[in-house]
Design a protein around this nucleic acid. Structure first.
Length: 434
RNA sequence: UCCGGGUUAGGGUAGUGGUUAUCCUUCAGCCUUGUGGAGGCUGAGACGCGGGUUCGAUUCUCGCACCCGGACCCA
């Protein structure tokens, strides 16, 4: 016996069937918005992450030198990769570029609730539009994906904020402020004691009075108050932009899922405009379910022409979204499903095989005996794979040129002429002959 | 990396410094080449790994691995 690797998980068929349903729902939703699927490598050069995020990020990467001497890393996120792809074909791609991709990612972190070292995300991004409609479309996609999974407005909450509001307000104080540290403090404010929060703010350069004032400003519902306080174009523009995104979200039918929450900052440095995080309304899932936002400077920093971008990345496996779905009672059934089991009694293989083949050609899931098992054992097996219908092909039936169609749930069965089965019926069941 | 709690057949469990480690379930075969989700019989399957203490360790002890939480970090 071997242990698995810490933070990596196996998925067996029944559990995977539920995950498959979740992934398909999220991807179908993306396709309905016209997002196009891409595929990307599992390895990138380590410097792709180091140069954008700092040397300390290496601690959280699976990185190593390959046999050709290249420093490579398992991808911890998709954004740098898609940015690289956009830069490489920038002139060839019609804008806006709308892509999605579901894939595993790897981070060398300590596993915790809803967090593993290997996890799957569906990344959804729009490149080439700086309009608020693009931000709102990302919000709308995310909200639709969740409601298509069975969640409603009572279950989750998108906390929406704007990076320039935070940065602009800080800039408006007469102080030498470490903006990055201050934003990080804001991002933590919900999780830590108030005194600790104020300590972090004052550490970042604000006076105590300024920290209080800043905290008050973030709590406001009146965005105009922020504009008046700062008196700068930066804040005025950011407020206007955030309002425009929320207005668009209203028209897109998803405003009800969004809450203004300036305390939401996101830890990542490359965000520039609207940012948001999805939370469990009940709070049983203790950390953010997923997040997204605008990163208008990243493509240019990768050597491309200035290209605005906005995206979101729900985790679909080994992440907090499945926990939220379970908490809300909408997690799909973890069970196998099978349309037909074709049961053979005696040497009836030619007929059984023909029937199985024709049912499969109609798109059905069909199993038949490959273990030379007894009648009872075959029925047991058919039961274990949740077969809906058993087609009994027995020597006795065939003597009368018939087969037996059996409904597995009720046990009822009916004799049917073998020559006309399945015929042009796509998915015949017991009820069709009853 | 750090802190807390865990680890006994596939799943759930009982128990013990000393014979063949308990029970339920599961799985496989058979009764059963014509009726499963019922029953009977037979069989399979476990003390996470390594070191130490001991005549003897699944039990005590140390280290490691993995699991569940949490801190840090969060892309």
């Amino acid at each position: 016996m071997y242990d698995g690797i810490k933070g990596f998980r196996d998925f067996y068929p029944a559990e995977m069937a539920a995950h498959r349903e979740v992934i398909d729902t999220v991807e179908d939703t993306a396709q309905q918005y016209g997002f196009r699927e891409i595929a990307t490598p599992a390895l990138e050069e380590t410097r792709l992450y180091v140069e954008k995020s700092g040397e300390e990020i290496v601690e959280d990467l699976y990185s190593f030198e390959d046999q050709g001497g290249r420093d490579v890393a398992l991808t911890p996120e998709l954004t740098p990769t898609v940015a690289r792809m956009v830069v490489a074909k920038q002139q060839a791609l019609a804008k806006p570029i709308k892509w999605y991709s579901t894939r595993p990612f790897w981070r060398y972190e300590e596993p915790q609730q809803g967090r593993f070292r290997e996890f799957y995300q569906t990344n959804v991004d729009i490149f080439g539009s700086e309009e608020p409609e693009a931000d709102a479309e990302i919000l709308a996609f995310a909200a639709d994906a969740l409601t298509n999974l069975g969640l409603d407005a009572e279950d989750f909450d998108f906390r929406v904020s704007h990076r320039d509001i935070l940065g602009g307000l800080l800039e408006a104080f007469d102080a030498d402020i470490d903006t990055r540290a201050a934003i990080r403090a804001v991002d933590k404010s919900e999780k830590i004691e108030e005194a600790e929060y104020y300590d972090l703010l004052t550490d970042s350069g604000l006076s105590y009075e300024q920290a209080e004032q800043f905290d008050d400003l973030l709590a406001t519902d009146d965005l105009g108050e922020l504009t008046d306080f700062a008196g700068t174009d930066r804040v005025a523009d950011a407020v206007e932009n955030l309002q425009a995104v929320l207005d668009a979200a209203e028209d897109f039918g998803v405003r009800e899922y969004c809450t203004l929450s300036l305390e939401t900052a996101r830890g990542l440095d490359y965000y520039t405009g609207v940012v948001f995080e999805c939370f469990d309304s009940v709070g049983e899932v203790s950390r953010a379910v997923f997040g997204g936002g605008r990163y208008d400077d990243l493509i240019e920093s990768f050597g491309g022409q200035p290209t605005p971008a906005v995206g979101v990345a729900p985790g679909v496996m080994n992440s907090t979204l499945p926990l939220l779905l379970q908490r809300a009672g909408v997690w799909p059934e973890e069970e196998l499903s099978t349309d037909y089991y074709v049961l053979q009694v005696g040497d009836t293989r030619p007929v059984a095989a023909r029937i199985a083949r024709e049912l499969r050609q109609e798109g059905n899931v069909v199993e038949t005996d490959v273990s030379d098992r007894s009648f009872g054992a075959q029925l047991d097996y058919a039961d274990s794979i949740n077969a809906e219908t058993a087609i009994i092909v027995g020597e006795r039936d065939l003597e009368d040129d018939e087969i037996t169609v059996k409904d597995m749930a009720s046990g009822e069965q009916v004799q049917v002429p073998v020559d006309s089965f399945p015929g042009d019926r796509g998915r015949p069941t017991y009820d069709d002959f009853d």
